[in-house]
Amino acid sequence: MVNIDICKQKEISGILVRFEKRRDSLLPILIEVNRIHGFITPIAMAEIAEFLEIPVAEVHGVVSFYHFLSTKKRGKYTVRLCKTISCEMAGKEKIEKILKKELGINFGETTSDGLFTLEYTNCIGMCDKSPAMLVNDNVYFNLTPEKVIKVIDELRKRD
């Protein structure tokens, strides 16, 4: 039988020191880890659980509740296209197509170069400037196929 306390490996202790040791730090910690590492690993979850002295299952339960927190490795840029009503009416379909074509992947997938992850999201409050999408922390709106190509190109070049 093998017993491994994975917590012995420290991966996010640098982040944890910035937070108060109390339960209501959990979501801010998760958001920060997710922001810096792009996703939350089992080791990170165990480390957070140890830090807050709560079961790992509870940490994972919280992670799984919020759509912006991920337990899977994502690309450097997560593209989230809004699929709710106003964006849908304003031509989400066209944007959908061009994103798939430009990135060469389907929704829910990550490009093989690890640069982009493509996802849907629910209403992002850009209904007056639809269709719209988020790329990491930034919002892009009044999208046209041309504009999407430009955005993706710029992000590629930045690397």
């Binding site: 093998v2 017993n3 994975i6």
Partner: peptide
């Protein structure tokens, strides 16, 4: 007794 993982347990 066998000390086991506190936060993660495999095997």
């Amino acid at each position: 007794y066998t000390p086991r993982g506190k936060y993660f347990f495999v095997g």
